[in-house]
Amino acid sequence: MTSREEALRALESRDLTGAYIDDVKRQVSIVHSVRVDQELSEWIAAESDRRGVSPSLIIRDALMEAKAAQASDETVTLKLSDLHRAVNRLVQPIGYRTA
């Protein structure tokens, strides 16, 4: 008898009349494949080693942080001239900044 036949026979003889479904609701996990460069891959591996968790948890945490940041983001209205002043302050060399 083959292993497949043995497995099927074992399933046929199983009595599930007393079985119950655990009432705990579990979220379905879906796997997403992602390609990263070597530097990011090494960072993920180092961070997972440092925390003592799997690389999947590191990636999941980063995605959850990004989602939370997006949810708390809000649109603001400002004058274009104020925006230009703010950007110019960021890109000017430190020695040339004006108050």
Rank of each mutant, 00 (worst) to 15 (best):
V31F: 07
S41M: 04
V76Y: 03
T75C: 05
L40N: 04
L57K: 07
T98F: 13
S41K: 06
H32Y: 01
V28A: 10
I94M: 15
E5Y: 03
S54Y: 10
S54L: 03
E12V: 05
R9M: 09
L83M: 13
R35F: 05
S56R: 06
V24H: 14
A45Y: 00
L78Y: 05
D61I: 00
L83T: 10
V36S: 05
E12T: 02
H32E: 01
Q92I: 14
Q70G: 03
Y20A: 14
T2D: 10
R14W: 12
K25C: 13
E6I: 00
L57R: 06
R89C: 11
S33A: 15
K25E: 08
S54F: 13
A99L: 14
K25N: 14
L90S: 04
L78W: 03
S56G: 09
E6P: 05
T77G: 06
D73V: 03
D22Q: 00
E42L: 08
L40V: 12
S41D: 05
R89D: 11
M64A: 11
I21Q: 15
S3W: 11
R60A: 08
S56Y: 12
K79C: 14
G95I: 15
S29K: 12
H32S: 03
D49Y: 14
L90C: 03
E47I: 03
T98L: 11
R89T: 10
V87L: 09
A99M: 13
V87F: 10
Q38M: 12
P93D: 11
A68H: 06
A62R: 08
S3T: 15
R26M: 12
A69M: 10
Q92M: 13
V87Q: 02
S29D: 13
P93L: 03
A10M: 06
R85N: 08
V31Y: 01
R26T: 12
Q38A: 13
T75S: 02
I59D: 06
R51A: 02
T75M: 07
I30V: 03
L80Y: 12
V36G: 04
Y96T: 14
R97Q: 09
R35S: 10
V34W: 01
I94P: 15
V31H: 01
L78S: 09
V34T: 02
V87H: 08
D82F: 00
V53N: 09
I58W: 00
W43F: 12
T77Q: 12
L90M: 00
T2N: 11
A68E: 05
V53R: 07
V34R: 00
E39Y: 08
R50E: 09
Q27V: 13
Q38W: 04
D23P: 08
Q27Y: 14
P55G: 01
L63H: 06
